[in-house]
Design a protein around this nucleic acid. Structure first.
Lengths: 239, 239
DNA sequence: CGAAAATTTGACCGCTATCAATACCGGTGG
DNA sequence: CCACCGGTATTGATAGCGGTCAAATTTTCG
């Protein structure tokens, strides 16, 4: 796939506060324009990378929505995360020079390709970038701790409520509604992420609707009672 | 607690191949001796750090055994990992300048304190160290993907078998037996890590004993049939 | 040595998985 | 435009795994 013709410039990108360090000098900011080698479009359903593929770059999502998932030899499939604009994808590949999961676009997407050797080289020159990279990695570790808590100790309702609240919060940080969202993934993918079967996800949605917490029309979800969802998550002080 | 009097030198440490980059030049290796500011002893049951504590350093475990866990306001408790000699602890603190979990020694332990500003400064000078730090962070992310798979898709027997196999494998890499191990944690801590109740852990151990897979005497475990445990893990190709 | 913690085991229950049938939606082609 | 089709979602009936509660026993540690 040939690189797109247009000029890439992080310093002008309207997502830069999401994926670049803030408070850079002019000079440093211009250096970071070298970070992005090219952009790449990924069609809905296509993979940005697959398990086993050589690790070359990290990817900053410009538009679109991804899932990452691991598929084991024995047929298990676990969605490890959903990523949206401004988030960084590919961190799993650093340790072994190969990717260890699949990254699949759930809608047509575009990413900035940041070759990892450039990231490392620039990090040595620009401490703010170095720190930023460390924080991105650490943030992912902390996020996964939260998922472990969810998978290890929450019941189905708590998991789904947590999931919905997390999604709207991230969407809201990107300028979308606090109460309305469109799910880009199937019930099965939600279930895989939450450690539930798709039927359980569907039933739990239905229960939320009965209780007046949300409206659900297929993948369109409107949150009617944020506090109610929060109280579901925090209700289980009983352990 | 005053720093111990003896001289700290990574270049002589017999764990260096576990926690330092390999293939360094003499000069670089000597530089890395600056990495460890001091050592610190942690008594069994004491915390190396607590949730909310300011993040200053990463810790390389010299001796002993730790658990990391998150404790939420609403009383949930999730063990996020068990760490042994040569492993690095504290990565969760980088992103927010505060630790987000507790690190508790499960037996008397000693750690090397590596102030993070020194790590960052040296990383800029020694590319091999920079790469090493990135790999440590990425490895933790990949490890947690595995835990998500376990928590999201495995049944109790599979979880415990996976856990035991992982523990002996890591111990074996440190020169211990492939088949014998002493659990440093309680059934409840194992259960928390595996998303199970302590009674389920105990029952599953008993079932393994009945089936002749292991011998269990309190915390002493001898693996009698490694292949049998493996087949439990991989048995569920049925999804 | 004695109190507290940890472990094991039993009985029972409830949540979620499983199996199955139906409904719905979006896209395609007649 | 509408009928059709495959993937997706909902809902019901049932079963089983693991949770909960409880009690007995062992171990640990001050």
């Amino acid at each position: 796939m040939p690189p797109p013709p247009y000029k890439v410039a992080c310093s002008n990108c309207n997502l830069r506060e999401l994926c670049l360090p803030s408070g850079l000098s002019e000079a440093d900011a211009r250096k970071l324009d070298e970070l992005v080698a090219t952009r790449r479009k990924v069609k809905r359903g296509a993979a940005l990378f697959n398990n086993g593929a050589p690790f070359m770059a990290l990817y900053a999502i410009r538009t679109g929505f991804f899932k990452t998932c691991i598929l084991t030899e024995d047929g298990r499939n676990q969605v490890t995360g959903f990523q949206m604009a401004g988030e960084i994808i590919g961190l799993d590949g650093i340790v072994g020079d190969r990717h260890t999961c699949d990254a699949i676009a759930l809608e047509d997407a575009e990413v900035c390709v940041m070759p990892f050797d450039r990231i490392e080289a620039l990090s040595r020159e620009v401490p703010a970038l170095q720190s930023h990279v460390h924080k991105i990695l650490s943030r992912e570790i902390v996020r996964e701790h939260g998922v472990m808590l969810l998978l290890g100790s929450m019941r189905a309702e708590e998991r789904l409520a947590t999931f919905l609240l997390n999604l709207v919060q991230r969407l809201h940080a990107r300028g979308f509604s606090q109460s309305e969202l469109v799910l880009r993934m199937t019930r099965e993918e939600i279930g895989s992420y939450l450690g539930l079967k798709l039927e359980t996800v569907s039933r739990t949605f239905s229960r939320f609707v009965e209780e007046g917490l949300v409206q659900v029309k297929q993948r369109h979800v409107r949150i009617l009672n944020t506090a109610g969802l929060r109280s579901i998550v925090n209700a289980s002080a009983c352990r």
